[in-house]
Amino acid sequence: MFNGIHHVAIIASDYVRSKYFYTQVLGFTVLAENYRQERDSYKLDLQLKDGTQIELFSLPHSPKRLSYPEAQGLRHLAFKVDDIHQVVAHLQQHNIDVEPIRVDEYTGKSFTFFSDPDDLPLEIYAIGEQD
């Protein structure tokens, strides 16, 4: 019935800063960018190589969402990576704080967390060979 995740929608507090983060730092490709005049809002469609998409929105006066302490609801967004050490080094070159790499006790795969410009928790999860 379900074939996979098509997209995740994110509302940014600073659209320009988040657009830069997701395109220039994380490497998403821009599919479309539209200004919705009736809402005074941008909608940016972004895509990864595997087709996974993020819809990045600017919505004026949207309330801040709590990320910490962890609250009910969507916990985080996780990205598959082949080389976790390479990705961590790339993020750190962009002055992004990254938690120490941990190993999933059930799968033996490496993972770690960092945050987007609005403190949305993002995870990188190694799908390649174990470290």
Rank of each mutant, 00 (worst) to 15 (best):
G27N: 02
Y125C: 09
I11A: 06
R65E: 09
S62F: 15
H94E: 08
K19T: 06
P60E: 06
F111Q: 05
S58Y: 10
V30F: 05
Q93P: 08
V81H: 01
K19V: 00
E129F: 02
Y68V: 14
D97I: 10
H7N: 04
H7Y: 07
G4T: 09
E55R: 03
E38T: 09
P117F: 12
A89C: 04
V98C: 06
Q93F: 04
F114G: 03
M1Q: 05
I11R: 08
F2E: 12
F111L: 14
Y125V: 10
D45C: 06
G51M: 02
N95C: 08
Q72M: 14
P69A: 03
E99K: 05
I96C: 03
F114P: 12
P117R: 12
P69K: 05
A9L: 00
M1Y: 11
E38S: 13
G51C: 07
I5S: 02
D45L: 11
I84T: 09
A71K: 11
L46V: 14
Y42T: 09
Y125W: 14
T29R: 02
P100E: 09
K19C: 05
M1F: 00
E33Q: 10
T52R: 12
S110Q: 12
L56F: 05
I5A: 04
Y125N: 10
F111K: 05
P117T: 10
I5K: 03
G73L: 07
K49G: 08
T112F: 04
S41I: 07
N34L: 03
L77M: 07
N95T: 09
V8W: 02
F79G: 11
V25K: 07
I10G: 05
L44C: 08
Q24S: 12
R36D: 08
F79P: 15
P60M: 01
Y22S: 01
Q37T: 14
Y15A: 14
A12I: 04
V81I: 04
I11N: 11
S58A: 01
G108E: 06
I127H: 09
K43S: 08
K64V: 15
K80I: 01
E123V: 07
L77I: 15
D119V: 07
N34D: 15
P69N: 08
H61A: 01
P60Y: 04
H90C: 06
L48G: 10
T112A: 10
S62A: 15
I96H: 04
S62G: 03
L46P: 15
E55F: 09
I96D: 10
P60Q: 03
E38M: 03
Y20H: 06
F113M: 14
I127K: 04
K43L: 13
I127C: 10
H7G: 04
Y106I: 05
